[in-house]
Design a protein around this nucleic acid. Structure first.
Lengths: 202, 202
DNA sequence: ATAATCATGTAATCAGTTACATGATTTT
DNA sequence: AAAATCATGTAACTGATTACATGATTAT
């Protein structure tokens, strides 16, 4: 009865989506997903599916395909209920999760402005490549969601660049008037005017 | 010599930021972070710090504070190098990581439009609350980054709502004009015109 | 006096990882 | 014939989790 983990929820959703399927197919689905977070290894997926079956959220039907055996799984009624509860859990959905870019950006004041800017430029290139990639050629819907995720990350990156530039110790030479424009982003990055002397991390 | 995990990198960054500190303080920092992803439990952090020390990325200085002992850690030269390598790893930074909202949105076609819309509305409320929260009262810089993260998530949410609405089977009754407002986002949710017949899950 | 916080750890457990093993089937 | 893919698992390991234990110090 306890709550599903996110991997369990995602696995249920995957099985629910593609009818009765094998653990192998579920593992593949995770392995092919653009997120690097779950490897989709057999060592993770087979025990996971068995766990869900033993909790009566999945039903197994053993069949054979010539001499080859296969076990197909589908959701039971409680499986569907559990899936819905996991899927529609807005509180959990609103969490931050783990974002490798955010975890780094938070600490970007520890490197020089030069290194920081080079880093952000590289990230942008990687994001653009990822956005352009066809990760779900068979599902335009998922592909569109993927594209929107990457687009959102890129515009967040732009916001971050603006933010970090604003909190900068002021460039040393010449100092052209610096155009302190009124910050026309959509999101609005809250308070934090650009004071506070920056540590010049090595 | 092997690459730092993200938790290791974040721990190094935290120690580098706040001078020589204790494992306890590092754990606190993770526990107080707005991300729910790392619990900041002693069981995770103490062994982690000890691991980093045994790899000579941290240097320990045992001191006493009255009768109370404490171990302060600071980065060695190789520690700083490792931190920089982790922090500026653009490839890893550009990954998707784990996003609890994304993992659910991908499967949102498995519930009714009503449930889906209610869910997204709830998520929006949670995001707004999270955005308004003061998570780093002592660091306006980090607070600003946090606000920008949440703002980015909210505008992504708007993009998703538009996307899912576009791929809808057309509303059945009356249809009041629906105020299709011009969507002033920055991000732009890329291609994906709204065809493709939707499965009506459950 | 009591409760909260600082500080350091350990034990049991859980859920993932990589890597391996086996064998059938399909593609090149 | 060889290589790739389908399919099912297991073993050793790693790195988290919760929960507990201990004791000093500080705030109420």
């Amino acid at each position: 009865m306890s709550e599903l983990t996110d991997l369990e929820g995602a696995a249920l959703a995957e099985i629910h989506r593609s009818g009765p399927t094998t653990s192998y197919a579920v593992a593949k689905a995770f392995a092919n997903s653009p997120s690097e977070f779950w490897s989709g290894s057999a060592g993770a997926v087979y025990p996971l599916i068995e766990r869900l079956r033993s909790r009566r959220l999945l039903r197994a039907t053993r069949g054979k395909d010539g001499a080859r055996v296969r076990t197909d799984y589908s959701l039971t009624a409680s499986g569907r209920a559990a899936l819905r509860a996991w899927l529609l859990d807005a509180r959990r959905a609103a969490g931050i999760g783990f974002d490798p870019l955010r975890t780094r950006v938070i600490h970007l004041d520890q490197v020089s402005a030069r290194q920081r800017d080079a880093f952000l430029a590289q990230v942008r290139v990687h994001l653009q490549q990822a956005a352009a990639q066809e990760v779900w050629p068979d599902s335009p819907r998922m592909q569109a969601i993927h594209a929107s995720v990457m687009a959102a990350r890129m515009s967040w990156l732009a916001a971050i660049e603006a933010l970090l530039l604003a909190g900068q110790p002021a460039p040393r030479r010449a100092a052209k008037p610096a155009a302190r424009r009124a910050d026309a982003r959509g999101g609005g990055a809250g308070g934090a005017g650009g004071r506070a002397p920056r540590k010049r991390a090595r």
